[in-house]
């Protein structure tokens, strides 16, 4: 608790909690909707956009939002079409965005510290404005889930069924994609442009190994997401290592543990069943 006397650590503490909430909840939606690849393309677009902003002398956050919006409006409708394999467009856009990011990176005059910090994140340097943006995006995701909880479940189950019931499934589908890009951009500077995808996927994938209901998956994913961020922050502070990398490392270890201890098809359960059958 003494650590929280420093204002930068206080911001990092709240930033970790907000990143954990926003990323985990959006992660549950994209993983259950089976479009996690969208997160890859969007996170790399945000990274390329931010570096482009540095090169052009424009606020990196706004440029990140612009690049995300472009990629979202290209991939969203493509992933929506049943007769088009979205992996192809994601593959092309993912490589294009990474190529652009490196191109912009090479054109930054002088030290590249700001750009590189976007790559691996620096939650210890976030300011009040960034914290506010993270809080707003996390709140938007929460409100979306709370008010449309039942309708979202139908869309995750089968979009055709949702449509036949008169549920605005396209609105829900595109809101999920837009929220995904907002959360990624808002959290990019703290977690890192290349690492944030793991914070989307790992808590959701871990929670899916442990729970059977959607509400529990959301809650457990948030607990894992926030826990990974706080533990990652603490470890990075003690060992003087990049925070984003530590957060991802912790969340990946939690995912591996959830695979082992999963009550569904976990390794331990398989061993137990094997012994029983012998």
């Amino acid at each position: 608790m003494q650590l929280l006397e420093y204002s930068f650590l206080r911001y990092a503490f709240w930033g970790s909690i907000l990143a954990g909430i926003g990323c985990s909840l959006v992660g549950v939606l994209v993983v259950t909707l089976q479009i996690p690849f969208l997160g890859v393309a969007i996170s790399h677009a945000a990274f390329a956009g931010a570096i482009c902003g540095i090169v052009l002398g424009i606020n990196p956050l706004w440029m990140a939002y612009l690049f995300c919006a472009i990629v979202t409006f290209i991939i969203g409708p493509l992933a929506d079409k049943a007769n088009f394999r979205p992996e192809i467009s994601v593959g092309i856009l993912f490589s294009l965005m990474l190529g652009l990011a490196f191109l912009f990176l090479a054109n930054i005059p002088g030290a590249k510290t700001e750009a590189l910090s976007l790559m691996w994140g620096s939650i210890l340097t976030i300011n009040r404005t960034q914290l506010l943006i993270m809080a707003i995006t996390s709140l938007l995701v929460l409100l979306f889930l709370v008010f449309l909880f039942k309708q979202i479940k139908v869309v995750l189950f089968n979009r055709q069924v949702a449509n036949s019931l008169g549920i605005p499934e396209r609105f829900i589908y595109y809101t999920i994609i837009i929220l995904c890009s907002l959360v990624i951009t808002a959290n990019m500077s703290s977690i890192g442009g290349l690492l944030i995808f793991s914070l989307l996927i790992n808590p959701a994938a871990s929670a899916l190994q442990l729970c059977y209901t959607f509400s529990r998956v959301c809650i457990v994913a948030v607990v894992i997401g926030v826990g990974s961020c706080l533990l990652g922050l603490l470890l990075s502070y003690h060992w003087n290592l990049p925070t984003g990398a530590m957060i991802i490392l912790v969340s990946s270890i939690i995912f591996m543990l959830s695979l082992i201890f999963s009550p569904k098809k976990g390794f331990l359960k398989k061993i137990f069943l094997l012994k029983e059958s012998i």
Binding site: Q34, V154, F157, Q160, L165, L208, Y212, R216
Partner: peptide, 25 residues
């Protein structure tokens, strides 16, 4: 409307009660 079976992901976090309740929406 019951569409063709499209192969539901076994990991989908929904109970039977949830799926039947969709009809009420």
């Amino acid at each position: 409307y019951v569409p063709q079976n499209v192969g539901i992901d076994p990991q989908i976090p929904l109970l039977v009660w949830d799926v039947i309740s969709f009809g009420r929406l």
